[in-house]
Amino acid sequence: MNLTALDEQELSAVIQFGEAQGTATFTFTDPASGASVANCIISGGSLAAGLKGELDGETSLVIEETL
C-alpha cells in the first residue's frame, strides 16, 4: 500500500498503528472486495513514512496474510 498526500494527522495514525502492532497479527479489510482478512501482518517488519511538506506525507507498507 502506497499512501500519498497525507496530512500529519493521517500519517501519524498509520505510524501509531505500526507502533501498536509491531509484528503482531491484525484483521485487514481488503479494499477491493471489502472482506475482512484475519491473521495479517506488516510484511518484512518495516514501515516507511515521510513528510515532504505540510500536506505531503507518504507511507508505504506491505500487508501479508499469514496462514
Binding site: 509491531g22 517488519g45 518495516s46 514501515l47 516507511a48 515521510g50 513528510l51 515532504k52 505540510e54
Partner: peptide, 27 residues
C-alpha cells in the same frame, strides 16, 4: 521538510523440518 522515518521490527524465525515457520518478536 523533508523528513523520513523508517521503522523496522526484528523477528526470531525458526523453520521446522516440516516446513512450518514459527516467528516471535524480538522486542
Amino acid at each position: 521538510f523533508p523528513v523520513s522515518r523508517g521503522r523496522q521490527w526484528r523477528s526470531i524465525v525458526n523453520v521446522m523440518e516440516s516446513g512450518e515457520q514459527i516467528s516471535l518478536p524480538d522486542t
